[in-house]
Simulated assay, not measured.
Amino acid sequence: MSVDPFFLVGTVLCALSLILCVAAVITKTYPGDAAIVSVAVVELFLVVFGIAAGIRQAGGEPVRGEVWEFWGYLATALILPIVAFWWAIADKTRWSNAVLGAVPLTIFVMLFRMEQIWNGAPFS
């Protein structure tokens, strides 16, 4: 099983975003630009990932798992950063950073699952 380059890029972006958000929680600051922008970068990656996945699927590359499950994960992943952003705007406490930090961690898990669905899960 080969690893998709999109998965690797997504993993790096999620890790960097998580580090920035955790640092913001530790420093007990309100949601600053670094945490919010890092989650926005993850959202932008998901948009590009979705467009690329649509092009790949339309080009005939098969999804080895359930197609509806892959697109369901992607749709859910696209919603999470938006909800966290609005939470951070509405609640100006350090705990908003924790909510923002949950997003890249959750999206990493969802990317891992989408990789399994697309390429076939060796452990399922």
Rank of each mutant, 00 (worst) to 15 (best):
W95G: 10
T29M: 06
E115P: 04
P81K: 02
I51P: 07
L44M: 10
R113S: 06
V47D: 06
S96E: 10
V109Q: 00
A58E: 01
W87H: 13
F108R: 11
G101D: 06
G101K: 01
I36G: 04
A88P: 08
G10E: 03
I51T: 02
D91T: 13
I82E: 01
P104K: 02
M1W: 06
F70H: 11
S96I: 08
E43L: 13
I89F: 12
V41E: 02
T27R: 13
D4W: 01
F70W: 08
G50V: 03
W86D: 00
L100C: 05
Q57I: 13
P62C: 05
G54A: 11
I19A: 15
S38Q: 02
T93R: 11
G50K: 07
D4R: 06
A40Y: 03
L80Y: 07
P122Y: 04
G60P: 09
L74Y: 02
E66A: 12
G54M: 10
L74W: 05
V48F: 15
E69H: 04
G101L: 05
G72W: 06
L80K: 05
L105N: 01
G32N: 12
A121T: 08
P81I: 02
L78V: 10
V12W: 00
T29I: 10
V22I: 14
R56F: 10
A34D: 05
L16D: 10
W68N: 07
F70E: 04
Q57F: 15
